[in-house]
């Protein structure tokens, strides 16, 4: 595991997540250690059940570790209260999902504005920022459309804009191209690459696809909840 000079953005020590299902247990993440520095683009690879989504869920503050430490942007996620995790999700991370997860009753502009409004920011500024992001993503003609009126690629670009609205330190993408055709998939990966290169945003992508390999600074392979491979490409 490579060392970094500054304090890493993400530090994990003996990170473990165990799910209790009925009378049995399933180990989602099995005591892994890793660091991620700022401005990295990390790709998590592995088959279904390898623990990619579980790890992403922990990093996103959607779930909490069972054992071990996970410190992201100086916040100890294992000891965080539900309120602190909510705050974390608002300010530190932005998530992009495989199935886009746009709210069906909100327009494109409203979907993108939502995280900022939840964070208590003032609407005029939020709307302006949202429109700027959507313009960058070539979605201006779709501002007032509902998700049902968008194509897959447009929905994912909207989701990316939503993930960026609060200027998070980290973007987490869980199979962002899983529901897209190859062309759109390529476009989305390029976008994520641009975010990392040009804006300096740390990006972590969980994916089966090889599309992310060219833009990755680090590739981590997982199997059965453990890290089997760690490749620095930068």
């Amino acid at each position: 595991m490579p060392d970094t000079v500054k304090r890493p953005l993400i530090e994990a020590r003996k990170l473990t997540k165990i799910y209790r299902l009925g009378t049995g247990e399933v180990v989602g993440i099995n005591s892994i250690d890793f660091n991620v520095s700022e401005r990295e683009l990390v790709v998590l690879k592995g088959n279904s059940g390898s623990g990619k989504s579980t790890l992403l869920a922990l990093l996103a503050g959607l779930d909490q570790p069972t054992h071990g430490d996970l410190i992201v942007a100086d916040q100890d996620l294992r000891k965080a209260t539900p309120g602190q995790l909510t705050q974390y999700r608002r300010e530190v991370v932005g998530m992009v999902f495989q199935s886009f997860n746009l709210l069906p009753t909100l327009t494109v502009l409203e979907n993108v504005s939502l995280p900022s409004l939840l964070a208590g920011r003032r609407r005029p500024k939020v709307a302006a920022k949202a429109m700027e992001l959507l313009a960058w993503l070539h979605l201006t003609p779709r501002l007032h459309h509902l998700p049902a009126q968008l194509s897959g690629g447009e929905m994912q670009r909207t989701a990316i804009a939503r993930a960026l609205i609060n200027e998070p330190a980290i973007i987490l993408a869980d199979e962002p191209t899983g529901n897209l055709d190859s062309q759109n998939g390529k476009t989305v990966m390029e976008l994520l690459g641009n975010l990392n290169r040009e804006l300096g945003t740390t990006v972590i992508i969980a994916t089966h696809s090889d599309l992310a390999d060219p833009i990755a600074t680090t590739i981590i392979r997982l199997r059965d909840g453990s890290i089997t491979d760690w490749i620095c490409t930068a």
């Binding site: 996103a60 909510t86 997860n101 939840l118 939503r162």
Partner: peptide, 16 residues
């Protein structure tokens, strides 16, 4: 439920 999970993931508190 899924929409509620989305809201929670975007920073909505359970109180909201």
């Amino acid at each position: 439920r899924h929409e509620l999970a989305i809201l929670r993931s975007l920073g909505a508190s359970s109180r909201l």
